[in-house]
Design a protein around this nucleic acid. Structure first.
Lengths: 185, 185
DNA sequence: CCTTGCTATGCAACTCGTTGCATAGCAAGA
DNA sequence: TCTTGCTATGCAACGAGTTGCATAGCAAGG
């Protein structure tokens, strides 16, 4: 149940409403954890009734009021406990890999368009990450004072960058493989 | 609902029982798609009643009888239809990334052990993949006759290998980052 | 005024995935 | 003989995640 913890981390980084959290899950946090607004509202409600988060009604002008959530003591404790217990290395799920192996029983070359589409999605994400890195972490290598929040966010972002680069290279490999079947038909 | 399709692909590669499928999902298929035996039995039952797969009772000596499933026409059609429709690039879920960002609000250096554990899991998997590659795809580069099933399985395996190598390098990066906080406390 | 569109929150129903438990055949060793 | 352990299948309950829908405030433009 790491959605709870992902929300707690996000609220520790910056308190916000369910709506704002949902937007973050489309961006920064969402790079390694996805969630819809439904899930988020439900979890926030549960965490509120468990005393993990505090709520504050924030009137706004020009837009509807919002409920701003922030992490309370018990929520912090729950997060800390989770951080100190081991978790299983994640299990991966790649629809595309299923498709690639399945293509052997259909028309391999027909997959080329789909793989190209995915490649484009990954190059887009990579560019997005790199732009974010240039914007938020400009002092590359300049070892200033240790800011845990910044340094660790940067480390996670570097992971995202490495992942996208790996995927692009692999999809090129797959495309080269598929091309051999195209020449064949 | 790609579990259906993952099972169909696996049965096309080789017919088998629910139990055998569950074992494959711990190994080859499981590298990019996980499933427990419960899920598998449930899906097989549904696909059987939908006519996607055929069943055959296979008596065995020395062990309990089994039901061997194989893909029927409608199942093949369903797979083919899925192969030809676009899918969304997968959404990733990395508990460990949540932990790393969360560690900023706890004790970063306390994560070192956990990250090392994950690194070990990934080096183990990498070695396992490489052994499988050496065993099943020895003729590296030797462009023999085009066998779609083999070539595409190999391409997917290369993806797994690239993924593990990327993860190991990134976890080393994370460990170096965390080490700076250890020196600090 | 009316539509479109963004912010903001939520319910209900459903499907997918996990966990615990149960049963049963058979082999091998203590 | 009794236990352990692997093969083989399955039910029941629960929790996580998805999808469709609903409501409402407010702004901007046609």
């Amino acid at each position: 149940m790491a959605l709870d913890h992902a929300i707690l981390v996000s609220l520790l980084e910056k308190p916000g409403s369910g709506y704002e959290l949902a937007r973050r899950f489309e961006r920064s946090i969402g790079y390694f954890w996805t969630a819809t607004h439904q899930q988020i509202y439900r979890v926030l409600k549960r965490m509120e009734s468990d005393g993990w988060v505090d709520v504050r009604d924030v009137p706004q002008q020009g837009r509807p009021d919002k409920k701003e959530y922030s992490v309370a003591g018990p929520g912090r404790d729950a997060l800390s406990a989770w951080l100190h217990e081991p978790i299983e290395p994640e299990s991966v799920r790649h629809d595309l890999a299923v498709k690639i192996r399945g293509a052997a029983f259909d028309d391999p070359a027909a997959l080329i368009g789909e793989v190209r589409r995915h490649r484009r999605a990954h190059t887009d994400r990579l560019e997005h990450y790199l732009a974010g890195e240039a914007r938020d972490f400009p002092e590359a290598g300049g070892d200033g004072p240790l800011d845990a929040e910044r340094e660790l966010q940067h480390a996670v972002l570097r992971g995202g960058i490495a992942y996208e680069r790996m995927m692009i290279a692999w999809l090129d490999d797959v495309l080269a493989t598929l091309a051999r079947f195209e020449a064949d038909r």
